[in-house]
Amino acid sequence: MRPRRLVRYAKRVVLYLVALAFTAFAVFPFYWMLLTAFKANRDLYVGGTVLTHVPWIFNAPPTLEHIELLFRQTLYLTWVRNTIWIGLVVVAITLVLAVPAGYALARLTGRWGERLGIGVFLTYLVPPTLLFLPFSRMIAWLGLQNSQWALVLVYPTFTVPFCTWLMMGFFRSIPRDIEEQAMIDGYSRFTVIRKVVLPLGISGVLTATIFAFTLVLQDFVYALTFISAVPRMTVSLGVPVALVRGDVFYWGSLMAACLITSIPIAVVYNLFIDRFIQGLTAGAVKG
């Protein structure tokens, strides 16, 4: 009796230790960002060979110096603004294209719609790496070099397939009966979509919005290819590429920028991840 309970206890401890290790691996870069963002320079820039100076803690009082620098003397806020407006326009375009398309694939197009849906999803797998060179050519044709409109034009190429697929999954999970009932109750298919399907799919639309926005935020390749003027950059490009003075990295401000940008996204992701997986697998496995 005794030893068995002991074994169980030990198992439990091991379980927690393993979980702790995983979490530590996932989180420690962010912890390091946090420390860096608030450490005074004399605490921060101590060579790694000095074993008496423990870098994992504050050895000097924390400072807001780096944050101030980030907001006052860099273009960080401009980049945030750029990202937000580009993101909003892209989200709008995405929803206008993907929501009707997702519904059409889920309900109106039958067998060939299913194939087409898979086709649309596969286009999401065509990576920016393959497309940025031809795009640079097309953007040059259109005279959009160094313009944020180039990004607005290009970002829907990955948000639309992705969100179409996501919406298709969501719409499929709405019982057919309900839509047919509404048609019998006196509405046309189109009105049914407006009055019944959209209100029921609103959480799906919200999920699509969030993920379209975060996909925009994630992009590095296209921004790097099309935008060279620092004030026109997005956060994802500006912070790693332009938050440098000559050869000097302002690590404190840099890490502050990374942290401040990442945490809100992570929070929102976390709120929507279940719906996201549900939509993704509903599309893949059929509801």
């Binding site: 019982p175 009966d177 309900i178 009932q181 048609m183 019998i184 109750d185 509405y187 019944v196 029921l200």
Partner: peptide, 20 residues
């Protein structure tokens, strides 16, 4: 003649109530 114009009412096995 679409369903809406047929003047029929239907009760589904699932009742198909509008959940929202």
């Amino acid at each position: 003649v679409p369903p809406r114009a047929r003047g029929v009412a239907m009760v589904f096995q699932s009742y198909a109530l509008y959940p929202h």
